[in-house]
């Protein structure tokens, strides 16, 4: 216990990652509020020209487009060769190190061990939830835009979404779209709790990281390729 403890600062979330994150969070918030109001229109217009539902739906559609653009941008960004935001980070189950980290994390969650994984960037268990979330997003896009395009059958969007219409009836689409919201709400509860927990337990500025981009840690991120990461999140080749 004699050597001094060194917290190293890593640049884990680049600006585009943070922007996408907050655009996602904001649009999810708007989509859930307006979506709920579409399902249960509790706010009533007092006169026929009030356009209350009209605006609610308008906000829903604009936020829907914003989320679509943000999610696609994030996916494209994951193609760059960054240690922490690259696409490989999303699939820990493809590598042995990833599996090990998932196990460590599960032990942590089930109070078996107090150790957290040797991961500087994403939490290896959380990324599996992100992958699930992105799949739900695409379900929401498909059903949402398919419901939306029904105002103009024969239009380009309606044509593009033909597989969705062949797959299920409009009412089924509506039901799954509605249920999707509840799955996302469950995800958000889980997500906010987990980042809080890791913030408290790892003491590395987890929550701050999604605002500033930096995390502080004593750990060394282990990559399966035998690569290492510098403080900017760029790969450096090491001999192994």
């Amino acid at each position: 216990m004699s050597e001094p403890l060194v917290f190293k600062r890593y640049y884990v979330w680049q600006l585009p990652v943070r922007i996408c994150h907050w655009v996602n969070a904001l649009s999810i918030l708007l989509l859930s509020i307006t979506g709920f109001l579409i399902g249960y229109p509790v706010i009533a217009g007092s006169s026929p020209d009030a356009y209350v539902m009209g605006w609610v739906r308008f906000v829903h559609f604009v936020a829907g487009y914003a989320l679509l653009i943000s999610v696609i941008s994030r996916l494209l960004w994951s193609l760059n060769d960054h240690c922490f935001s690259g696409w490989r980070e999303y699939f820990p189950f493809l590598t042995r190190e990833g599996w090990k980290n998932i196990l460590v994390m599960l032990k942590f969650y089930f109070f078996i061990d107090r150790k957290t994984p040797d991961a500087v960037g994403h939490n290896p268990l959380a990324v599996t939830a992100y992958v699930g979330l992105f799949l739900i997003f695409f379900g929401m896009f498909a059903s949402g835009f398919a419901l939306y395009a029904e105002h103009a059958p024969g239009g380009a969007m309606h044509g593009m979404l033909k597989p969705v219409y062949l797959l299920m009836s409009t009412q089924t689409m509506r039901l799954y779209h509605h249920l999707g919201m509840w799955f996302i709400i469950c995800y958000v509860i889980n997500h906010i709790y987990s980042v809080w927990l890791l913030d408290v337990k790892e003491k590395g500025g987890e929550i701050t990281s999604i605002f500033s981009g930096y995390k502080y840690t004593t750990k060394l991120h282990v990559f399966s390729e035998g690569k290492e990461c510098d403080e900017n999140g760029c790969f450096i080749k090491t001999k192994k």
């Binding site: 216990m1 403890l5 917290f7 969650y109 109070f111 107090r114 150790k115 957290t116 509860i189 889980n190 709790y193 809080w196 927990l197 408290v200 337990k201 790892e202 003491k203 840690t217 004593t218």
Partner: peptide
């Protein structure tokens, strides 16, 4: 579930980073 987890977690001793 997460609330319960949170309560238990806060009662547990944290692991010192060192």
């Amino acid at each position: 579930a997460f609330a319960a987890h949170g309560v238990i977690s806060s009662l547990r001793k944290d692991k010192d980073p060192a």
